[in-house]
Design a protein around this nucleic acid. Structure first.
Lengths: 117, 117
DNA sequence: TCTTGACCTCGAGTTACTCAAGGCCGGTAT
DNA sequence: ATACCGGCCTTGAGTAACTCGAGGTCAAGA
């Protein structure tokens, strides 16, 4: 499949996919005889994973390391697992932040309500 | 109180506070006779709010509008309330994203475990 | 044949910081 | 008395992660 469909399926934008490829985040993108990128189902899975990792705050550098390990095959699974476990902890922190902000907003809105009376 | 303490209390960095002031996000910062910024408790509350709004993804432009309204006094409370309610919806969306990513990580880690056996 | 649409590359622009350089000023140590 | 130090100041450049525009190729349809 071609890049626009890859974008639609992964959640990433077309431009972002090209950018990620240039940054070495997407191994194994092949080109057709027309010079255009062709995406395999495995490519799509990978892009989708990248989308969610990025969306939830994983920095590019970490994603680059992750991608490099992925490109090296199954022997790197323990290291990749560590990266994902770290990210899991980050998600927990983000959830705490959201809760904290929710509280603050609730208090602020409360005060606004009082002012409106 | 001075800028380093303001940073410690609000969560923002010193540089970020100065940047925010330059961008018009912080009304009413007074200067002492030495030319240095002095922060009132109200300033600190405001900076803390900005910190949490930004941390949870409110764009600068929205914060600028919010700050401009704040600077105009209580008459703008209804509009400010709308902004915070909008942001509240964004928080809910972010929480969904975190949940979605958690699922994906769990599935991925599961697959890694299988590979490791 | 002409145009339309999807793709391509490359380079510049944007957002939201972040840092480094160079300078002032009040307080302590020699 | 002076030397140094830490904390503040401004300005301008650098960074991360996109995002967009210009200009070009190519296959398929009217």
């Amino acid at each position: 499949m071609r890049i626009s469909e890859a974008a639609a399926r992964s959640g990433l934008k077309v431009d972002t996919i090209r950018y990620y490829e240039a940054e070495g985040l997407v191994p194994n993108i092949v080109r057709g005889s027309d010079g255009q990128r062709r995406f395999s189902p495995e490519n799509i899975d990978w892009l989708t994973l990248l989308y969610w990792l990025r969306e939830t705050g994983m920095p590019m550098k970490v994603m680059q390391r992750f991608a490099a390990l992925y490109a090296q095959g199954d022997a790197t699974i323990p290291e990749r697992k560590d990266i994902l476990l770290d990210h899991s902890r980050l998600l927990a922190k983000r959830r705490d932040d959201l809760d904290r902000c929710d509280e603050i907003l609730a208090r602020k809105l409360e005060i606004y309500e009082e002012h409106l009376r």
